[in-house]
């Protein structure tokens, strides 16, 4: 149960124009099965780095610590293997793929993951049915399926497209990296609903955000405060409200 996602003493650095810069400095975090956790923290605390390291981006060098996910050494896996195992990262800034039809991309991804999980691939008809159900749920137009992946999408459309991918790939653990940024209140509600309706004893999530606002819609089981590449405080959902009122100062001082 507690070995669903376990991060111990994680250290990671990035090469910043030739000089290595330490970003994660011994981070400990556990997310049990079926729980939604939030990470809040000031800019530059290493939140996005954490999400990239977990998803397997190789610009980051892991210099210490370990991550186990469903009993496996997550850091030894390729990014696509992590996805097959059930991890999903919703990007803060989704990348554009010019000329690549969105529906084709989604179907290629879904079938790659299904193949890796030993499930039967979806044919065009079954896939279209599945995707139509989801786009309706997320108030997305069919037009977004016909366009090139993220090309010319508004900020809100990109985020919805991320949530659409998440729902189609059916992860057991999703990381949402500032999915609320750039969303108006209606879009925020739709996106939050897209996440909430996945909540089940078999689905966990790590919600990374700057703002209390998102956590009004996705109410976390626990909130962690991150600063200087570490988790410096953990508690219930009410911490988020404290942060909103008083800022990070008290946590930073307490940790110092």
């Amino acid at each position: 149960m507690s070995d669903f996602l376990k991060i111990q003493g994680l250290q990671a650095r990035i090469d910043a124009d030739g000089t290595p810069k330490d970003i994660l400095k011994g981070l400990d975090l556990e997310v049990p099965k079926g729980e939604v956790h939030a990470i809040m923290g000031p800019n530059g605390s290493g939140k996005s780095t954490l999400s990239y390291v977990l998803a397997g981006r190789d610009d980051y060098e892991v210099t210490g610590g370990s991550v186990t996910f469903k009993g496996q050494d997550l850091l030894a896996l390729e990014p696509e293997e992590r996805t097959a195992l059930g991890l999903f990262l919703a990007f803060q800034s989704p990348v554009e793929l010019p000329g690549v039809n969105n529906a084709n991309f989604l179907r290629t991804a879904v079938n790659a993951v299904r193949r890796a999980r030993g499930e039967a691939e979806l044919d065009a008809v079954a896939f279209l049915k599945a995707v139509r159900a989801e786009t309706k749920h997320l108030s997305m137009s069919d037009d977004m399926l016909k366009r090139a992946v993220n090309v010319g999408f508004s900020g809100g459309e990109k985020k919805r497209n991320e949530v659409l991918q998440m729902r189609l790939l059916q992860p057991s653990f999703a990381i949402l990296d500032e999915t609320d940024s750039g969303l108006d209140i209606d879009a925020l509600r739709i996106v939050a609903e897209g996440v909430n309706s996945l909540r089940s004893p078999d689905f966990s999530a790590l919600v990374i955000t700057h703002h209390q606002r998102l956590l009004d819609y996705i109410v976390p089981d626990r909130v962690h405060v991150m600063a200087h590449g570490r988790i410096i405080h953990s508690g219930g959902p009410d911490i988020a409200k404290t942060l909103e009122k008083q800022g990070y100062t008290q946590f930073l001082e307490a940790a110092a």
């Binding site: 397997g56 981006r57 990014p79 696509e80 990348v95 793929l97 991804a109 790659a112």
Partner: peptide, 14 residues
Amino acid sequence: SEDQLFYCRSRGLS
């Protein structure tokens, strides 16, 4: 770009 490759791979593509 590395960004494009990583994005695709994080969606399960080799």
